[in-house]
Computed example of a mutant assay.
Amino acid sequence: MMTTHKIGTREEWLAARLDLLDAEKELTRLSDALAQRRQQLPWVRIDKDYRFETESGNVGLGSLFKGRSQLLVYHFMFGPDYTAGCPSCSSIADGFNGITVHLENHDVAFTAVSRAPLAKLQAFKKRMGWSFDWASSGGNDFNADFNVWFSEQQQRDGTVEYNYRREPAMEGIRRGQTVAEWREEGSGSPMEQIAASTGTDIATYTRDRPGISAFVLENDKIYHTYSSYARGVDGTWAMYQWLDRAPKGRNEHGIWWRRHDEYGQAA
Rank of each mutant, 00 (worst) to 15 (best):
R45F: 01
D141C: 00
F96L: 03
N143K: 11
A112P: 03
Q155N: 08
W43D: 07
S69G: 12
E26K: 13
K66P: 08
L18M: 10
F78E: 11
R29P: 03
Y74E: 01
D32T: 10
V113P: 01
A23H: 14
N147K: 09
G67L: 13
Q39L: 14
D19W: 00
A116P: 03
F142D: 05
T159M: 11
S90P: 02
I46M: 11
A15N: 10
S69V: 08
A135W: 08
E152L: 10
K25D: 13
S151R: 13
V113L: 10
D107W: 07
R51E: 15
M77V: 11
G98R: 07
L30F: 11
V148Y: 01
E104D: 13
Q122W: 10
A135Y: 08
A135D: 06
Q39K: 13
G62E: 15
L121H: 02
R115I: 04
W149K: 05
Y162I: 07
L64D: 09
Q39A: 14
Q154R: 12
H106Q: 10
F124V: 00
S69M: 02
L71Y: 02
N147E: 07
A15S: 07
E26Y: 10
K48G: 07
Q154I: 14
S31C: 00
H102K: 01
Q122P: 04
R68G: 07
V160W: 07
E53G: 11
S151H: 09
D133M: 11
R51N: 12
E104M: 05
S137D: 11
Y74S: 00
D47R: 09
A84K: 11
I92M: 07
N147P: 00
M128H: 02
I92D: 01
L61K: 05
G138S: 05
D107S: 05
T83S: 14
R68N: 13
A144R: 15
S131K: 10
T111L: 04
A109Q: 03
A112Q: 01
L118C: 09
G57P: 10
W130R: 02
F65P: 08
D32G: 03
D107Y: 01
D19I: 01
N143S: 15
G95C: 06
F110T: 02
Y74Q: 03
I92P: 00
K48E: 14
R127C: 00
S88V: 07
L34R: 13
D81R: 13
D32Y: 06
L121V: 09
V148D: 03
Y162F: 12
D32I: 06
I46Y: 02
E24I: 01
L18A: 08
A135E: 06
V59C: 12
V44P: 02
S88K: 06
K25P: 03
